[in-house]
Design a protein around this nucleic acid. Structure first.
Lengths: 242, 242
DNA sequence: GACATGAATCCTGTATACAATGAATGGGTT
DNA sequence: AACCCATTCATTGTATACAGGATTCATGTC
């Protein structure tokens, strides 16, 4: 039993009934918040002790996390937090541009009043949070906007794919964000995007999304030298992160 | 213990070591071949007896099949073979057109000689199989072409998404294919597609795929009256298919 | 000191037992 | 006959035990 588990996941112990879904949510969130860095070992018994359940439940949770590309699960080996390579990061962004662009184009001019209000509220919330320097809250609002787009997608299949891609890009954003860059906030991007959606021009909306995501990707440090991160994660022997 | 299991899955029993992957493969294939119709109950113990393993292994297999959208797994209920609705079928095709079109566009003019040969061989095999009326073999070759595209995709993330979409569309093709229509063979489509890929024009390749998939979808019977299939599957009380 | 070898340990893979939930069944009432 | 309720059965959810593979560490050899 090492140290990270207590600090990161202790809060959950208070919860009454823990199911595999809870574990998935908590771990996913911890990875997203970089409290569980890539390469972190996730042994089944340890996780079970932390959450107060047996390995059966943990195993199911880990399998689902693996299918979400959050952890790496190889036969006879400890599950570890995944460390997507630079190449995969680029490919994930490209896939998301394609899918989210299409979703935006399908959604253009089709938003009902309620959805528009929810989106606008999140956009305002993001700006506010950024204004008062509350980065976690800002990320929360930004993610909410994109998740809302996925949820509202008229094509549910594409919507589900987008949900997955948003998660994966969020993880790599946390991973490859410039260390000195506090925020990945693109002033006004979301606002103009929503305007395009209301306007109803599918191609403008699609391009709006593509541009937004390209700018986001450009904020990351994907230079080849960072490839060492992968090596460290793969070769890393220490039980903590490299 | 009912009857379908013996006939459909008995062949596996001879195999030496059965892992969850084997079960996933076998069940997926059986669903694809319509030997396990939508709504079929897949109880864990029964499956375990058929394959000669315990519920632990079966459970893992079912979870993976659920994440592949092959079976429906609801809490405290028997897993059943999924019956995608008409609406979902349309959405799946739309998603596949988007993704496979992009993959084709990325692949245009980038095929190395070996890949070209493999694709051409499958295309020839499909035509031959169709010539001698061997529909299962024809489907096999046709699927191989598309799976090869997914595998060759320069963008691996899109490739994996495409693999999933090919499976899902194949299942609904089997489901909604005109009863009297023996084949979903579109003469020459694959050949001209490969020509476009070699030619190297990304947009021609993309449109080739989109047109091919639209034609395929048009061959299906997606008229609203068929919605009864879903009801039967959902309400079906009999242990066999509705 | 570097490297190979072996044992001890950790961890996962699988099977099984028990608890809990949901569906099917049957009897009784209107 | 139709409906309601309690009981029974089928099936999943969870915990645990044991076996096997992987990793780690200590020992011995070059």
């Amino acid at each position: 039993m090492h140290e990270w588990q207590e600090e990161v996941l202790a809060e959950v112990r208070a919860g009454s009934r823990i199911s595999d879904r809870d574990i998935v949510d908590k771990v996913r969130r911890a990875v997203l918040m970089q409290r569980l860095p890539p390469g972190t070992r996730l042994p089944e018994v340890t996780l079970g002790e932390v959450f107060g359940v047996s390995r059966s439940v943990v195993r199911k949770a880990l399998t689902r996390l693996a299918s979400e590309h959050v952890v790496d699960q190889r036969p006879n080996q400890v599950a570890r937090v995944r460390a997507p390579s630079i190449e995969e990061t680029r490919e994930t962004f490209a896939a998301r541009r394609l899918v989210e662009g299409e979703v935006a184009s399908l959604l253009a001019g089709r938003l009902d009043a309620a959805s528009r209000d929810r989106l606008a509220a999140e956009a305002r919330g993001e700006i506010e949070a950024h204004g008062r320097g509350d980065e976690p809250a800002r990320i929360e609002h930004s993610l909410a906007i994109h998740h809302l787009l996925a949820e509202l997608s008229p094509n549910r299949v594409l919507g589900a794919m987008l949900t997955d891609l948003i998660l994966r890009t969020s993880i790599v954003i946390a991973l490859y964000k410039w260390a000195n860059l506090a925020s990945c906030f693109l002033e006004g991007d979301h606002t103009t995007l929503l305007a395009a959606l209301e306007q109803g021009d599918a191609e403008v909306a699609r391009e709006g999304i593509r541009h937004h995501l390209e700018s986001l990707e450009a904020l990351l440090d994907l230079s080849p030298r960072e490839a060492s991160i992968d090596l460290k994660a793969i070769l890393g022997r220490s039980r903590e992160q490299a």
